[in-house]
Design a protein around this nucleic acid. Structure first.
Lengths: 259, 259
DNA sequence: CGTGCTTTCGCACCATGCGCGAAACGGTGC
DNA sequence: GCACCGTTTCGCGCATGGTGCGAAAGCACG
């Protein structure tokens, strides 16, 4: 409120500002007025109108003349969909994951690997099968403690893994997290041979996770399908879960190839 | 400078450019390189890096160092979700619409009114129940020929309707489209009294549509739930469809109030 | 140790975007 | 009708921010 929200701002001034206006509008469910933009960013009204005009011309925002408010527009929608598409989240894939959740009686996750990052692209959960509380759609860390993370690391060769390790280290999230590089490499070899990753109590106590790779036509692994269950269920159901998850990952890969 | 291939471009230069970079990246499934940005926008590499840097700092894009490519980042995802949320499209609403589609054996639409515009926020369809081909997620026109459009117009008072009509007119899309303002006003009165809008062959020949209002707690109508069927099915099933659509709209309104 | 790429940096110029102020709209009240 | 809001558009002159250019730092490959 009021002036002086000068941020760490380094970047092109007007570009920075236009992006910040977008975020401001996104953060306001009912949209914003030009006046709100000006005092929120600490700029004059004229400048606000110039920024808003630029955004409007490109359809990033729409002007509700009746309410004097600016709201998000179709280009934002298009970008969001483009991202969803880049992340493999189609209606069809959602439906497949819903079936998977039901079959496995457990929440289902789709993760996509982007360099060293892992994007949690979609989560299918329900009241009966709630997600891991800590995990949300977005970017995930601590790859060495999650099933899909191990799958991602398993795509790397030795040199790339070295680079990754020295950049990120092996932090323990629970007593059972693997923090020894040698041990991890052994695990990754197993992951490669089984084309499946399993993690028990390494990310969250009492929670186990099982992940199978999603692949493109060429055979490269680009992500994972996984489910999480609590540890005591896991031991009884592991074989069934394995089959179910493998099937889900296969179906998603096939849809990806067709799509 | 040099010979610019500058288009319609009016707006703040660097702001314009940064937005265009975003779109470019969105349009390229695999992401883009800095070099691609420069020749595509006809700017120097240094400028490209400055733009990309600005976007990256705000997490609109992410840099895949290994591949030298820039891809869409988490802020775009956040904006997309914000828009979806503004448009009432939650997981829960999706599930409700899926049930509606199954119950009605017809594709289901969620539309949200934004001033004079109508945003088609979500479509539930399946292979057995494909959508109206002309209709896609985005903004819809010709409100007087669609069921949800009539619902939107019915929220207006006489003066506001006048304004709308003189701005948009009443174009005929089919022989059965209503083009007479008096007739339309009568229809809208009926819509208000029944809290339901029906359209038969007015938007597309052989296609009928039925829509019920989605309301917020205060009672204001902010959108509609609708289904479409072909005209000959409609006459036989109209009462059943009416009940089903009303139920769906009610459920969505309730979820909106709770959510 | 060169070659070709991406990426960062410094510099000097001047177009560009800025704040300021005024004015044209568009409602609402009286 | 007029006078008082708020929103929105416009014009102007200044200096600052953004530009292209060029060079250099990284980095991978051979």
């Amino acid at each position: 409120m009021t002036a002086g929200t000068q941020r760490d701002a380094v970047g092109l001034q007007s570009a920075d500002r236009v992006l910040r206006v977008l975020e401001l509008i996104g953060a306001s469910p009912a949209g914003v007025t030009a006046a709100e933009v000006s005092d929120h960013l600490g700029i004059t009204v004229s400048t606000s109108y110039r920024l808003l005009g630029t955004l409007e011309r490109q359809d990033y925002i729409a002007h509700q003349a009746s309410e004097h408010r600016y709201i998000l527009g179709r280009t934002v929608d298009a970008l969001g969909r483009a991202l969803q598409h880049q992340l493999v989240v189609t209606q069809e894939v959602r439906a497949t994951m819903r079936t998977l959740m039901t079959d496995a009686a457990a929440p289902a996750y789709l993760t996509v690997f982007r360099g060293d990052d892992i994007a949690v692209a979609h989560i299918e959960e329900s009241a009966e099968h709630p997600r891991i509380t800590q995990l949300h759609v977005g970017f995930a860390e601590a790859s060495h403690t999650t099933a899909f993370g191990k799958l991602m690391l398993a795509t790397k060769d030795d040199a790339a893994l070295d680079t990754y390790l020295e950049r990120h280290g092996l932090r323990a999230l629970t007593p059972r997290s693997v923090t020894d590089a040698v041990k991890l490499r052994e695990q990754l070899d197993e992951v490669r041979s089984q084309q499946l990753a399993i993690e028990v109590d390494e990310y969250t106590p009492q929670l186990a996770c099982i992940a199978a790779p999603v692949k493109v036509k060429s055979g490269a692994t680009i992500g994972a399908i996984s489910v999480s269950v609590n540890t005591k269920d896991f031991s009884a159901r592991s074989y069934e879960l394995e089959r179910t998850v493998r099937r889900g990952a296969w179906q998603v890969s096939a849809q990806l190839a067709r799509g």
